[in-house]
């Protein structure tokens, strides 16, 4: 396992209790079983080997406890994460508010290196209480990619993770490039790149969702 170590991408899952973040992760990870690729399914930790941009990588999904009383433990988990997947339940306004809180904290603490992706989950349910426009607008305003998902039907999952991983790889490449050029890391540079990758994300999304 240590031999030709593939790059590991750490993705931290944030979402209030019962928004389906674990189901989302499990569904995504399990979908690789028939491809005969290594996958780990613990109750709260998942890995999946994938090929993105021609590169073998291992995705490690770090599930976190979403209950309010554990909120303050967040930084212990998202410290040094490559990406944060923020999940809310479209039928639950509170869960959307929690996502906003995490986004604020992530901006403040995790810095620009952490790519943000918001999943509007439970699209299979009819009675939504968080409006699509509001959620999309919020994501755009925060430089976060946005996807409609359903852990039940699998809607949007592949697209979400493909975009997420591409965006992380781009960001890493960018960091390496700038390190090689001896340039100082600045938020400005990163911001530009995130937006660029989001254009491609939203293109892909519009073709597959709704």
């Amino acid at each position: 396992m240590y031999g030709g170590q593939p790059q590991t991408i750490k993705v931290v899952l944030l979402g209030e209790g019962r928004v389906g973040k674990t189901s989302l992760a499990q569904r995504y990870v399990r979908s690789s079983f028939n491809e005969g690729q290594a996958a780990t399914v613990q109750a709260a930790f998942f890995t999946k080997a994938v090929r993105v941009q021609g590169q073998e990588i291992e995705v490690a999904l770090w599930d976190t406890a979403g209950q309010e009383k554990f909120h303050s433990l967040g930084p212990i988990y998202y410290r040094d994460a490559h990406a944060a997947l923020l999940v809310f339940d479209i039928t639950d306004t509170d869960s959307f508010k929690r996502v906003k809180r995490w986004v604020d904290e992530l901006h403040a603490m995790a810095g620009e290196r952490c790519q943000l992706v918001i999943a509007a989950n439970k699209q299979d349910l009819q009675h939504r209480s968080v409006s699509e426009e509001e959620a999309q607008e919020f994501a755009a305003s925060q430089g976060a990619a946005y996807f409609q998902t359903s852990a039940k039907t699998g809607l949007g999952l592949e697209e979400l993770f493909t975009a997420l991983l591409s965006s992380v790889l781009d960001s890493l490449k960018d960091q390496r490039l700038h390190a090689a050029q001896g340039m100082q890391t600045t938020g400005r540079r990163h911001g530009g790149l995130v937006v660029a990758s989001q254009d491609s994300i939203s293109e892909r999304k519009s073709s597959t969702c709704c």
Binding site: R18, K21, T22, Q26, A44, A65, G66
Partner: peptide, 24 residues
């Protein structure tokens, strides 16, 4: 061992059990 507890118990079979259950 705790993972086994979560995975073998029969709470709300449809809900995936993750960190929400693991951490407590």
């Amino acid at each position: 061992v705790l993972n086994n507890v979560l995975q073998t118990s029969s709470v709300g079979a449809h809900e995936a059990r993750g960190a929400d259950d693991f951490l407590p």
